[in-house]
Design a protein around this nucleic acid. Sequence first.
DNA 1: GTGAAAGCGCTAACAC
DNA 2: GTGTTAGCGCTTTCAC
Lengths: 344, 344
Amino acid sequence: MKKKILISDIAKQLNVSITTVSFILNGKAKEKRISDELTARVLKFVEEVGFKPNQLAQSLRTGKTKTIGLMVEDISNPFFASIARLIEERAYKEGYKIIYCSTEDDTAKTQELISMFRDMHVDGYIITPPEGVKEDLKKLISDGFPVVLVDRQIRGVDTHSVVVDNYSGTYSATSHLIRQGYKNIAFITIDSKQSQMVQRLEGYTKAIEENQLNTNILEVLYHQSASQMIQHIASFLGERKEIDAVLFATNYIAVRGLEAINQLDLISLAPNFGVVSYDDHDVFTLVRPTITAVAQPTEAIANHVIDIMLNLLNIRTKSTQAETLVLPTRLITRSSTPLKKVVQ
Amino acid sequence: MKKKILISDIAKQLNVSITTVSFILNGKAKEKRISDELTARVLKFVEEVGFKPNQLAQSLRTGKTKTIGLMVEDISNPFFASIARLIEERAYKEGYKIIYCSTEDDTAKTQELISMFRDMHVDGYIITPPEGVKEDLKKLISDGFPVVLVDRQIRGVDTHSVVVDNYSGTYSATSHLIRQGYKNIAFITIDSKQSQMVQRLEGYTKAIEENQLNTNILEVLYHQSASQMIQHIASFLGERKEIDAVLFATNYIAVRGLEAINQLDLISLAPNFGVVSYDDHDVFTLVRPTITAVAQPTEAIANHVIDIMLNLLNIRTKSTQAETLVLPTRLITRSSTPLKKVVQ
DNA sequence: GTGAAAGCGCTAACAC
DNA sequence: GTGTTAGCGCTTTCAC
């Protein structure tokens, strides 16, 4: 197989024209009224010699690469990894390849990636956008590319998006903590104005206020090292001994927060220290106590995203109404949020 | 930017020929003795209008896609994720794109991926091969593609590879446990004949034998669910109360093994139960006790791999001698391997 | 039903 | 030093 076989070789071997072979290969045999006999003969031969059309030539000619660009915040985060896997699987079944990358929530990197994807001629874009890429997205859309936003939205960008009900997620997590008897619940989040983070904060705040409790909010920086974040959380928690529970706004903050809690020996010192994380994570069942979490429906998210994308890709009409799909979260209660014993 | 600008547009605008523009764009201005003045003028214009050559056309013409296919066992495993990231970063700086995929250590999937990469016309292949792909790799190599194997080798495949000294890794981990006073050390690994797994087993066995101890080996199945694996490990450990330490052959076995150990309450029941994992993992500093691990030099691995690949890609000579690079591991001692107290 | 031929956008051998 | 032109391998219009 050193020597690449071409469509012209097929045609020559079979004594038919290139056109005929191409039509058959592209499933247009019926449409072009090519005899079943010939169709079968060509297909059989193609199969035998293992001919595969050159994708580059095909793409250059048709303008389609059958490739979808997928940009998530961080592919090493189990939440995004899981979504990416599911999307890839579905896409693959439909004959699409997925190229994925992590934005690291960095505006410049994301812009570069978008530009790289354009250069690669991807047919569609699935993105968890960081802040500051509004104009880039609008450009993509106005240039006619299918764009589906995941996990978060950008105000003013008119395109499809699939998100979860962040507000209810943190609202119910906070309510759960309150019901379990915790009174001083901290919310540890990141310094981000992204829609999903804002909504998570709102859900927490609402639940706290409804119960006439006080909010305790810490915003750590996204772009800082793990150890810095741990330190930051540890000093916050260390200074406020009155805090008896904490809700982490993402799983990676929680993982680092747990490290801080370990360092402070918070749980062993106060056996009734409550912990909840937004986003589930494998390690939450590994550590003791196991950690209560707000699970996001990764499968549903992935399925909806790819459905919408495939639809956009196949439909001629440019003008599908942009719609936002909001999926529910689910609180998984584990041992980190026990009923708080009242100490006299 | 709705309308794509072409190289012919540039030529027309500037009143020069397409060739000239192409030469300048490809850095052959000097070589073709094009005036500095013209070169500068073209470059300036190209910059201004934001012209980017169509990669598809370029690739079709040159036969090069400036893309490297990277297939790791499991991109969600921190070890592979970290290597992939580092490779991607370096490759990107050299003007190469990386397409990555997980083989899941599945022969058929890997073959499909290799075929997909061929279809995509990647310029080179970086692979952590599962069993059973020997012929596919040989084919790739004999067809002239640069192939670099990582983490494991395949006997009889004559190509470059970067691996670590697995034997010494488990040997020193086992020796460490013995030195700490453990007498019944189990080795929990997977049912794989891959080079790296075989070597890890050998290192363990050697250390055990040198000390006239008994081996306790459990092979779990790679392709089974997490809970099945946990169950499997738990029943093994539960049945053999004499085991006082365990060395896990990979980080994901260790993570599941820890779950099993938790279920059995092994560490709290026997405070001197020793645990070591081959491969480090973030959670090993999160759980209590923190887990001693054999760390692999991911950075060095990634750097060597990409160095070799770039070299292969740039050098004309097909006949670079295939060589295997063996990197050392490092034992990170944490609290899961305390000096064993002798109980009278 | 089938074939000839015009590109898709670029590179580079060859001519001048 | 610069321009003409023949492809890279495929799809698809148009003619027969």
